[in-house]
């Protein structure tokens, strides 16, 4: 069972939900795919088991073989190549490592070299396996790192996996949810929150993923635009997390609320039960 936790914007509570779900499940895997700003490790404080560098392929030109036809320059959709004064200039940071330039070169002048863009770490925290992806600052895309995370062998073992996705709805989010059995959308009770919820709502629909919404930071008796959105679109509301300064304080101090305080343990366990009920073909109870 692989559950992806996502939201259209940062700060809605993706990590809060994913971390606490992993903490209340037996022998689960927490996978931090928010590679631009991974922070789940701050809660789990995992003991490191392994670290692996992640590289991508960047083109390099052999000036002896290059005749300046510029097919590679014209081909590159990201404009990572320029041809100036009989010399090809490669912008590593702009290159998305598609390999197309090498394919279109009629002279075999382009080859590829490895460039390290970040790393993945695996660690243990109690009975939770913690995988963290880290993209180096300035790199074009974290997709190769997410691919490595999702290739982890724990994901084939049937244990519950909680994928903490990057914010937004771009390539790295698509990559993070592609193998998920179910998507949990975390939403804030603001108009801005609704706008961004709509983005991920469209994304999970596009991918045909089953999904539901957790309404976070709920204020009793106050209007909740995110709830209104869910009712209008007939979206399953999995549950509500209150706007609670005690919970917020535990979380901002790097504690796992479900472990620190029994009442939050119960809250996240029952929320997770609601999620599991919705996961297709899921018969085993995990909590």
């Amino acid at each position: 069972m692989k559950i992806a936790v996502l939201s259209g914007k940062g700060g809605t509570g993706k990590t809060l939900v994913a971390v606490n779900f992993a903490a209340v499940s037996k022998g689960s895997v927490y996978m931090d795919c928010d590679v631009e700003e991974p922070n789940g490790h701050l809660f789990f404080k995992p003991v490191e088991i392994l670290e692996e560098e992640i590289s991508v392929k960047i083109p390099q030109a052999d000036s002896e073989l290059c005749d300046g036809c510029r097919r590679c320059v014209d081909f590159c959709n990201f404009n990572a190549l320029a041809y100036i004064k009989d010399k090809l200039i490669v912008f590593d940071d702009v290159c998305h490592s598609c390999g197309g330039c090498v394919l279109v070169c009629p002279n075999g002048a382009l080859t590829e070299r490895d460039k390290v863009i970040g790393k993945v770490k695996k660690g243990g925290s109690g009975d939770v396996t913690v995988w963290t992806g880290i993209l180096n600052t300035g790199e074009a895309t974290g997709v190769p790192i997410i691919n490595r995370l999702l290739a982890a062998e724990e994901l084939r073992s049937g244990t519950p996996v909680f994928i903490d996705c990057p914010p937004g709805s771009a390539c790295i989010v698509m990559e993070s949810i592609k193998d998920a059995d179910y998507c949990v959308l975390v939403a804030e009770p603001t108009l801005f929150g609704v706008h961004n919820l709509n983005m991920v709502y469209e994304l999970v629909n596009l991918f045909g993923k089953p999904f539901g919404v957790i309404l976070n930071k709920c204020l009793e008796g106050e209007e909740n635009p995110a709830e209104k959105f869910c009712l209008e679109k007939d979206i399953k509301i999995l549950g509500r997390i209150p706007f609670d300064s005690e919970l917020g304080l535990l979380n901002s101090n790097g504690h796992i609320a479900a472990i620190e305080d029994e009442k939050y343990g119960k809250m996240f366990s029952s929320l997770l039960e609601e999620v599991i009920k919705e996961v297709p073909n899921e018969t085993t109870a995990y909590s």
Binding site: N79, A80, A82, I84
Partner: peptide, 12 residues
């Protein structure tokens, strides 16, 4: 109108 690397392409 390019998605990225506009400065590189414009310079070329």
């Amino acid at each position: 109108k390019s998605t990225g690397g506009a400065g590189i392409k414009a310079a070329q």
